[in-house]
Design a protein around this nucleic acid. Sequence first.
RNA 1: GCGGGCGUAGCCAAGUGGUUAAGGCAGUGGAUUGUGAUUCCACCAUUCGCGGGUUCAAGUCCCGUCGUUCGCCCCA
Length: 424
Amino acid sequence: MSTIQALRGTKDILPTDIGYWQHLEATARQVLAQAAFQEIRTPIFEQTELFARGIGEATDVVGKEMYTFSDRGDRSITLRPEGTAGAVRSFIENKLYGAGGIQRLWYSGPMFRYERPQAGRQRQFHQIGAEVLGSADPRAEVEASAVAGNLLTAVGVKSLKLALNSVGDREDRQRYREKLVEYLTPYKDELDPDSKDRLTRNPLRILDAKVERTREICVDAPSILDVLSAASAESFETEKQGLTTMGIDNTLDNRLVRGLDYYTHTAFEIQSDDLGAQATVCGGGRYDGLVAELGGPETSAVGWAMGMERLILLLQAIQPLPEPSVDFYVVSRGDRAEIQALGVAQTLRQAGYSVEVDLSGSAFGKQFKRGDRAGAKACAILGDAEADNNTVQIKWLNSGEQTEVSQVELLETAKNFHTQNFNN
RNA sequence: GCGGGCGUAGCCAAGUGGUUAAGGCAGUGGAUUGUGAUUCCACCAUUCGCGGGUUCAAGUCCCGUCGUUCGCCCCA
């Protein structure tokens, strides 16, 4: 085959689907602005080192999923696999912390990961994300999850679950890691091969293994919550109370682990049962160490990201898109009429209507048929007779009523169309 | 990176080794060369993702490849 196709794992978003994207984007802009978040747009590619340091060399994302290449100046460049690292880089580079107080930022755009495509997973995918920089208060988590919830509700997605866990700070995790390994080691030979391998590399990961026997073993594993320092535990407790007070349902899931190294303390996911294996629609948590890790001042932070493709999959299942339609469809035949038709279209647009012009030059009957298919409320009709008299016929398609209007007076006359014909 | 399903027109889709590749939607032209939503007629795949093989014969079987889909891994 010689035609060129879109790369594996990439998709065109066609006019038939664009309504979902526009709805999601408009809602995000509105909901986040209401919560005093400001939009930030950062580059789609960055120095590879930003992600290596920020996300963690040992993570799968950095280790085997990044689109990394050398540019013509021999710099190692990476297409961003997520949004937080870039936002934090920008926060530091532009000294946004200098403004003092708390920075609430949001972004949306394409992200890139070299993975095997699946439902709700592509190589180029899109996220909406929000970051709250500069607060160690557990209320920041509560607010961030509340805003995520507001957005999902406003978009119209239903029956989602908020799952919550604390992964503690560095010391907590080190302590927990030891306890967990101690518990799992006797079962070593019963674990699935992947988990067995992780026992030394990344034991926390074993907790969210999918293999049945491994899961059984993990049921009685010690919980990280029992190992948290007094401060970590108290903070987590405050957060849970905050969520409950706000009426946000949440379930504790002490197996929830985040795949990116920068998370500390709170980790949460918003999940749906309707997405198959890719259940997570929104994931986030606290990342107190990241800003300092990337060379900025010690700054506490909380953030989340939503997968737009996944949200749209949910939306498509519950909300059909309205058929596109126009107010006027301009039908014309004959040389002079066809030229005048364009002027009529401009005038109607000036009056605030949406207008589609038929350029086919085919028989009137065909043009009307197309106007009907286009969902037009009315046709503006120009033939030789109208061209001679500088008039235009307006035919309302639901009543069949037709009136003749002078082209010169069309702008004035059109202003009254609204009250007369657009209300039913 | 690993394992399973699938790939016929713009879309949905029949076809399971025998030769003219059903049907529906959409589209185009006409009945109706100045009036739509109904109806009727005609046209719309030398070819079944691509490449190779088996066979007298392949959309149908085999191999490879690309894409897609479901699961694993991982994540949003």
